[in-house]
């Protein structure tokens, strides 16, 4: 206990010390906080003594500690032995609010892109830009839609034209003998036992058939077209330069009711041929196939005058 007596004497000594030092420190802190320096002097002194005060012999260390309680020591003292003081609690509450705000802000900025934290005028600008963009895109969509309709239309037209062209090509091909044809018609068989049938008689038969509306004719495997000619002599007839022999077989597509009478008219083809001891048989059929073909030849000089 004798030690207790000298202690009170050195103890008051450190107290005044924090007093003046904050004043000088307060000068540096911030010009905006002059009150803190004066208040801090009393608070800093008030916060520490409760620790040292109650315990009797801890005062023995007091002479060594108080002289320079450095910032680091103060920090450590404030951190480690967790004391529940009024200051700590108040600061804790405020820091809780700070942490809450910080977390909310961080969350909201990372959450919903940049729009959430954007200012009003920025939002208005963004909205305007979006409106413009929407309008532009809408216009582009309309334009592209019109273009698409146009293209579809024209492709439809092109398709139609192509179909028509194909159809026409087929029709012309039948006339030119470049494609096979089938349909109702007749088959005329001329057996020439005497070998007296002349080429011009066959030509007459062809002319007669054409006059009666024959659309496709072939003779013994030779397609008869506009430029077909008969040559040679009886027994050695040539069609377009190809020799054909009896019996002569005409395969004709046309209306059978027209074709047959055309051959049988008095003084007509059949009678003329029968006069030469040839026999002529005419068979009607609902399905005649004319499949002898000619190569498509490009005329050397004649050109289409239409486009």
């Amino acid at each position: 206990m004798p030690l207790a007596n000298p202690e009170p004497v050195p103890e008051p000594a450190p107290r005044p010390e924090p007093g003046p030092s904050p004043v000088s420190a307060g000068g540096q802190v911030a010009p905006g906080r002059p009150a803190e320096s004066t208040a801090g002097g009393t608070a800093g002194a008030g916060a520490q003594p409760p620790q040292d005060g109650p315990s009797g012999w801890t005062g023995a260390e007091a002479p060594s500690e108080p002289p320079e309680p450095s910032g680091r020591q103060r920090l450590r003292a404030g951190l480690w032995p967790p004391r529940i003081t009024r200051a700590q609690l108040i600061v804790a509450v405020l820091l809780f609010g700070l942490g809450l705000g910080l977390a909310i802000q961080v969350r909201s900025t990372s959450d919903n892109s940049a729009l959430r934290g954007a200012r009003q005028e920025d939002l208005v600008r963004i909205l305007d830009e979006l409106d413009d963009r929407t309008q532009r895109l809408e216009e582009e969509k309309t334009r592209l839609g019109a273009q698409r309709a146009e293209l579809e239309n024209s492709s439809d037209q092109a398709e139609e034209a192509r179909k028509q062209t194909q159809e026409k090509e087929r029709q012309l091909g039948i006339l030119a003998g470049t494609v096979a044809a089938q349909g109702p018609g007749i088959t005329v068989t001329v057996t020439d036992s005497a070998g007296a049938v002349e080429p011009d008689m066959l030509l007459d038969a062809i002319q007669e058939l054409r006059a009666a509306g024959a659309e496709a004719i072939q003779v013994n495997g030779v397609r008869v077209v506009a430029g077909t000619y008969f040559s040679g002599e009886a027994g050695a007839i040539e069609v377009d330069g190809r020799k054909i022999g009896a019996p002569y077989r005409f395969t004709v597509i046309g209306r059978p009711q027209d074709l047959e009478p055309a051959l049988n008219i008095p003084g007509g083809v059949v009678q003329t041929l029968e006069k030469e001891q040839a026999t002529v048989t005419v068979d009607r059929s609902e399905k005649i196939v004319v499949d002898a073909l000619r190569p498509a030849e490009r005329p050397d000089y004649a050109r289409s005058s239409s486009q």
Binding site: A25, G26, V29, A39, A43, L75, A87, I90, V91, L102
Partner: peptide, 26 residues
């Protein structure tokens, strides 16, 4: 939040300087 951070740093500095007062901090 930034303003509060400033206050907290000021308070921390005051504490290290030994002039911390809870009332001033609040």
């Amino acid at each position: 939040v930034v303003a509060a951070l400033d206050a907290v740093f000021g308070g921390l500095r005051a504490m290290l300087d030994g002039i911390f007062v809870d009332k001033v901090f609040v």
